[in-house]
Amino acid sequence: MEQGTVKWFNAEKGSGFIERENGDDVFVHFSAIQGDGFKSLDEGQAVTFDVEEGQRGPQAANVQKA
């Protein structure tokens, strides 16, 4: 798993970007967020995640709040 920080997340659209510790920013969709309840992330929040190849390039998967 990688570690990173939420660069921004739009709760209305359900997507945003995570700033990786090593590498380019990666797209995140709300469906990749693990946990119960409303799936959203806050700017500056620390997260851990896997990276998968999506239709438009790398994207975060199995996102967990650190």
Rank of each mutant, 00 (worst) to 15 (best):
M1A: 14
M1G: 12
M1K: 15
M1E: 09
E2N: 12
E2I: 13
E2S: 10
G4P: 00
G4F: 00
T5F: 13
V6D: 06
V6M: 00
V6W: 00
K7H: 08
K7A: 04
K7Y: 01
W8F: 08
W8E: 04
W8D: 06
W8Y: 09
W8S: 06
F9I: 04
F9G: 05
F9M: 02
N10H: 05
N10L: 02
N10Y: 01
N10D: 13
A11G: 09
A11W: 10
A11T: 12
A11E: 09
A11I: 11
K13T: 14
K13Y: 09
G14W: 00
G14L: 04
G14H: 01
G14N: 03
S15G: 07
S15W: 15
S15P: 02
G16R: 00
G16Q: 01
F17S: 04
F17R: 03
F17W: 11
I18F: 00
I18V: 04
I18M: 01
I18T: 00
E19C: 15
E19I: 14
E19K: 15
R20M: 08
R20E: 02
R20K: 06
E21Q: 12
E21V: 12
E21F: 10
N22Y: 11
G23S: 05
G23K: 09
D24I: 12
D24E: 12
D25W: 14
D25L: 15
D25E: 09
D25Y: 14
D25H: 11
D25Q: 12
V26D: 01
F27M: 01
F27S: 03
F27V: 02
F27G: 01
V28K: 01
V28P: 05
V28R: 00
V28H: 03
V28T: 02
H29C: 08
H29E: 05
H29Q: 05
H29M: 03
H29F: 08
H29A: 02
H29R: 03
F30W: 14
F30L: 07
S31C: 09
S31E: 06
S31A: 06
S31R: 09
A32R: 02
A32H: 06
A32M: 05
I33D: 04
I33G: 04
I33L: 07
I33Y: 00
Q34L: 14
Q34D: 08
G35W: 09
G35I: 09
G35P: 02
G35H: 07
D36Q: 11
D36Y: 10
G37V: 05
F38P: 09
F38S: 06
K39Q: 09
K39M: 07
S40Q: 08
S40M: 09
S40K: 09
S40T: 15
L41E: 03
L41T: 03
D42H: 15
D42K: 15
D42N: 13
E43G: 12
E43F: 12
E43P: 15
G44A: 05
G44E: 01
G44F: 05
G44N: 04
Q45N: 06
Q45A: 10
Q45E: 13
A46D: 08
A46N: 10
A46I: 13
A46W: 14
A46T: 11
V47F: 00
T48M: 11
F49Y: 05
F49P: 03
F49C: 02
F49S: 02
F49W: 00
D50C: 14
D50R: 12
D50P: 02
D50W: 14
V51F: 06
V51K: 04
V51R: 00
V51L: 10
E52P: 00
E52L: 13
E52D: 07
E53W: 15
E53M: 15
E53C: 14
E53Y: 14
E53L: 14
G54Y: 06
G54C: 09
G54K: 07
G54Q: 06
G54V: 05
G54T: 14
Q55W: 13
Q55N: 11
Q55A: 13
Q55T: 13
R56Q: 10
R56K: 11
R56L: 11
R56W: 15
G57S: 05
G57L: 05
G57Q: 02
G57M: 05
G57H: 05
P58A: 09
P58W: 09
P58N: 07
P58K: 10
Q59G: 03
Q59H: 09
A60K: 00
A60T: 02
A61E: 04
A61W: 00
V63Y: 00
V63A: 01
V63Q: 01
V63R: 01
V63E: 02
V63S: 03
V63W: 00
V63H: 03
Q64M: 10
Q64H: 13
Q64K: 13
K65N: 07
K65T: 10
K65C: 09
K65A: 11
K65I: 13
A66E: 09
A66L: 15
A66H: 11
